[in-house]
Amino acid sequence: MKKLINRPEDVLADALKGIDAAHPELRVDHQHRVIYRARPKADGKVGLISGGGSGHEPLHGGFVGPGMLDAACCGEVFTSPTPDQMQEATSVVDRGAGVLHIVKNYTGDVMNFEMAGEMAAADSGVRVETVVTDDDVAVQDSTWTAGRRGVGVTVLLEKIVGAAAEEGRDLDAVVELAKRVNGQGRSMGMALTSCTVPAAGKPTFDLPEDEMEMGVGIHGEPGRRRVPLAGAAEIAEMLVEPVLADLDFTGGPSIVMLNGMGGSPLIELYLMYGEVATLLEKAGVQVARTLVGNYITSLDMAGASVTVLKADDELIRLWDAPVETAGLRWGV
């Protein structure tokens, strides 16, 4: 394992120090491992918290700031944060209008946020609502699994719902919007290589030189199937086809994200996006907004995912609203 780390057990603590040093507009609570805005939002506005295992940066800490999240709870690498972190963040960001927890659908994340909600309700009386993202079409049989995983749509949701909370919408309206965004987004990912969890010290799975993993999650958990390595055009088809098969995206604008898993260079991501854009156009999907880059990653895994969100004028307007975070920044 070759990584820019000191000791595997200190990766998160050391990374938080770097985030703290690099971003004076953020406030890092090193004890609870929560990243906040340095300047809290105004009273009467809904607070937005997300969190999850680390290793997916810029998600979620890179999306804390005006127009997006109020706080991000950082777990160990690929491990959900704990209820005390979320409870602390909830009480800190509450401006009297309640707090929305944005949770990716993974067993651990859901259970920890559930316990945090129970603890917050019992202790502080802050009104907490939860939305669980589950946009990964790679999970085919959600009846016999823990359900579809929350992946790329989480990024788009945090942006759109963050804009709505900033406008001053109440908690019920924010929850309704969040559920709508999740329901209208679909993603599919693939990996060319495994990732290496620092604490494990070696790749999570073996992937031969001439094979790739289709439908991979964001924790190195294997996907739908292992297939022979193919060219970008063919890979794009394998990603786009199941997304479009799952939801009709025609008849309105869409927001599309071509996301890198962390180990693929931007030139490859743009090359992939070119292939994806061609396929979407052929399928009659009108792409209104595009995001290409590393936004929800899986450490050093090489690969990419495609997320398509069925939008409308309202969602596009919220998407275009100003955002000022380490990971996304426009209109400011």
Binding site: G75, E76, T79, T82, P83, G108, M111, N112, E114
Partner: peptide
């Protein structure tokens, strides 16, 4: 519950 995280934290906790 407060130190493990993941699924095993809530379950063992």
């Amino acid at each position: 519950v407060t130190s493990v995280g993941g699924a095993s934290g809530p379950l063992y906790g």
